[in-house]
Nucleic acid binder design. Structure first.
Ligand SMILES: [Mn+2]
Ligand SMILES: [Mn+2]
Ligand SMILES: [Zn+2]
Ligand SMILES: [Zn+2]
Lengths: 143, 143
DNA sequence: ATAGTAATAGTAATCATTACTATTAAGGAT
DNA sequence: ATCCTTAATAGTAATGATTACTATTACTAT
């Protein structure tokens, strides 16, 4: 329920971007769910509050929020991307059956990135770790 | 240069799939490159050997090879997937600038998967780790 | 309140991937 | 080796998530 719009407002103003109802509502919707929704799911989540919002606006807003570091985009094997309002470093588990994405409550491996880099000349800015498997619901369904 | 077609032939016959020139050539092309090519890049790689091959055949073949565990599909932020003929567990580094994908010569974290799973009821079958950053060429270009 | 212009709604376009269909060619049987 | 069945291919059309376009709306500085 952390409706911390100040952070968004500051970040947007710093870039000369305007503060709009659409941007505030989309970011707050994303921060108040744990489901890692798709663009279309977000579109349906905010429709009650902005009945005539356009799907294009959702995509454009998500792009801007990503650019400002206020969300992270999750791209897995499926045909569409998911969005995560939690930008703290954390890992995910993806269900190979239903596509659900869960947060993994494991400490972040902070020492990984230094090992690589030197001999390859590759400058690392971060890493992503994802687990693949089957969620509780899908395991049940198979029995 | 490990043109080990026996492995492919065995795997395909076990599923009742037929052995075709297209499938042999595509898998061998994939095994003799370190570039993690896209479907279209593979299409261009095999065209000299199969001048009238269809891009659809490349996609269908890659799908079959993936299903048989003879390649892994790499999906990152970009607009297209990449394919890796090396199915041994290993990690990748993705350049945020040019999209290049490099193999990471680091040991696989085998103990990770057991930690999670029990309390969540999530059955893990594997994990993926990718580093993000800037390759040598792109670092140079920025100076 | 007004002016200037970035953002939006609505819609069309893009493009990687998948589906369709007539034709070809594996590969088992004879 | 030839025939037969049918899976796989080539060529092409369709799909669908995402992006681009454009007239209109609404932030925000003055
Ligand atoms: Mn998350
Ligand atoms: Mn690789
Ligand atoms: Zn599931
Ligand atoms: Zn690069």
């Amino acid at each position: 329920m952390s409706t911390n719009n100040d952070e968004l407002i500051t970040a947007f103003k710093a870039k000369g971007y305007r503060i709009t109802k659409q941007r505030l509502i989309i970011l707050n919707a994303l921060r108040n769910t744990a489901t890692h929704p798709t663009a279309e799911e977000i579109y349906n989540m905010v429709k009650p509050q902005i009945p005539n919002i356009s799907l294009g606006t959702v995509y454009r807003t998500l792009g801007a929020l990503e650019e400002l570091g206020l969300l992270q985009k999750l791209v897995y094997g499926g045909s569409f991307s998911r969005y995560d309002g939690n930008v703290n470093a954390h890992y995910h588990a993806v269900c190979l059956d239903c596509g659900k994405v869960l947060d993994v409550d494991e400490p972040v491996l902070s020492n990984l990135e230094e090992r690589f880099s030197s001999e390859t000349g590759f400058t690392i800015v971060g890493h992503k770790l994802e687990f693949h498997g089957y969620c509780k619901d899908c395991c049940k369904r198979k029995n």
